[in-house]
Each structure stands twice: as C-alpha cells, then as structure tokens.
Simulated scan of single mutants.
Amino acid sequence: MTNQPASELGHLTIRPKMLYVGTPVFLVSTVNADGTFNLAPASSYWALEQMLVLGLETDGQSARNLLERPELTVSFPHPELWPAVERLASVTGRHPVPAAKAERYRHASDKLEVSGLSFEPSEIVAPPRVRECKLQFEASVRRATPGLGEYLMVEAEVVRVHAAPEIVVPGTDHVDPNAWHPTIYSFRHYFDIGAEVGWRSTSDTASG
C-alpha cells in the first residue's frame, strides 16, 4: 500500500478547536458537600466492560464532588431531551464561578429547575438518577487522574444498570440497539443515531 500525502487523497489539513467526532451525551449526578445533588452534562466517554472512563472539567462542581465523595450516576438522555442538556451546559454548581469559567457559565444551585428534569433514588450509590433518561448507570470511582489542560479523567466501575423496559430485549439483559437511541454530540451539535448499517459477528442482538 502506498503512503500518499493526505493532500493527494483529497484531504485538507485542519486544526479544529475540539475533536468531538461523535460521542454520547451523558448527565453526571454527584453529591455536594451539603448533601444536595449536582447535575452536569458531559460527552467525553468510553467504556470497557463494566468500567467507564469519563472526562470532566477540573474546575467544575462534578469533579470537586467526585474527589471528595467518589460516587456518581451516569444517565443517558435520548435525543428528545437535548434542550434540557443544552440548558445545563451554561450553568455550574461552583460558587463563586471560577474565573476561567466566568465568561461562559453562570452559577445555578438547582439544576433540576434549570433543566426541567427530575431525580429518582439510586439503589447502591448516594447520587440519584435522572428519571427521564431511559438508560442509567450507578457507579463508584476507582481512580481520578488529572489530564492535560482543564480535564479530570475519571475511571468508574458500574455497580448497577437501569434500563426502561422498551429498550431491553425481552427476557434478556441486553439493551436493544434498535430501540435505544443515545444523543450523540458531534462538533457542538446534537444528533440522533441513524439507521443500522451492520453489526459485529459477536453481537448478542443481531437480527440477521
């Protein structure tokens, strides 16, 4: 195979401000020092079996809470909830607002009032789940590592999964990928996933 320069293949060399090529939006719930709860949106996420790796802003309330009280829930909003996610995107639970965030954020102590969402109790961890989200994880932090720049890399073990009945393959523990639609964040835009184009041979839910 010939290694051709990108320019000869018709590509452009660019330097985007962010590299969110398409990642799921999730809502992180944590416990504040006074026992109330914080809720924040994020989209830096990957999973390996029962472990999650999340990227959270270092100077955000979620990161502060997790370093002091290492439990969280991760709730995944379906695409119709994107306006609620966007309402949360410009507020922070930190007070006063850190100088680095002051131009982009305002303080809000009641994130449910801002978003229009609601909580329901978790079964194992202290932070609650977001009731409106069809897929919810309860998790415990196993390690938190400062990353480059303004982000904390959080490794968390999922200890319980909750799923709405309509997104589960009946009689199994499998999420039906044709019924479950995560909200995808791509270059600062929100998307629903499109039609299925294929599947791995190891899929537990493939229909063909």
Rank of each mutant, 00 (worst) to 15 (best):
N3H: 07
Q4K: 14
S7M: 05
L9W: 03
L9P: 04
G10V: 02
G10F: 03
H11W: 12
R15Q: 12
R15F: 04
P16A: 07
P16G: 06
K17V: 13
K17A: 15
M18D: 12
L19F: 11
Y20K: 04
G22H: 06
T23D: 02
P24T: 01
V25H: 06
L27D: 05
V28S: 14
V28T: 15
S29G: 15
A33V: 09
G35L: 05
N38L: 01
L39E: 11
P41C: 05
P41H: 03
S43H: 15
Y45Q: 08
A47R: 15
L48C: 00
L48D: 12
E49Y: 08
T58K: 10
D59N: 15
D59W: 08
Q61L: 12
Q61D: 11
S62K: 12
A63I: 00
A63V: 03
N65P: 11
L66D: 04
E68I: 03
E68C: 01
E68H: 14
P70F: 04
P70Y: 04
L72V: 00
P77G: 07
P77C: 01
H78M: 11
P79G: 06
E80P: 02
L81V: 10
W82K: 00
W82A: 06
W82T: 00
P83D: 08
P83R: 11
R87L: 14
R87Y: 14
S90Y: 10
S90M: 10
T92M: 14
R94K: 15
P98H: 09
A99L: 10
A99T: 07
A100S: 15
K101M: 13
K101Y: 04
K101P: 02
A102E: 15
A102D: 09
R104Y: 07
Y105R: 00
Y105I: 02
R106W: 05
A108I: 06
E113C: 02
S115D: 04
G116L: 02
S118V: 12
S118R: 15
S118G: 04
F119V: 02
P121Q: 02
S122D: 01
E123Y: 06
V125E: 05
V125S: 00
A126D: 13
P127E: 02
P128Y: 13
V130S: 00
R131N: 11
E132Y: 06
C133I: 01
L135Y: 01
L135D: 03
F137A: 04
E138Y: 09
A139R: 00
A139N: 02
V141M: 05
V141L: 10
R142K: 14
R143N: 14
E150M: 15
M153H: 12
E157M: 08
V158N: 04
V158H: 02
V161Y: 00
H162E: 05
A164N: 06
P165H: 00
V169K: 08
T172W: 03
V175D: 05
D176I: 02
P177S: 08
P177H: 06
N178W: 14
W180Y: 15
H181E: 14
I184D: 05
Y185D: 11
Y185I: 07
S186R: 15
F187D: 09
H189C: 03
Y190F: 10
Y190K: 02
F191E: 12
I193N: 13
A195P: 08
G198P: 07
R200N: 08
R200Q: 05
R200M: 11
R200A: 13
D204G: 01
T205P: 03
T205H: 03
T205S: 13
T205E: 09
A206G: 09
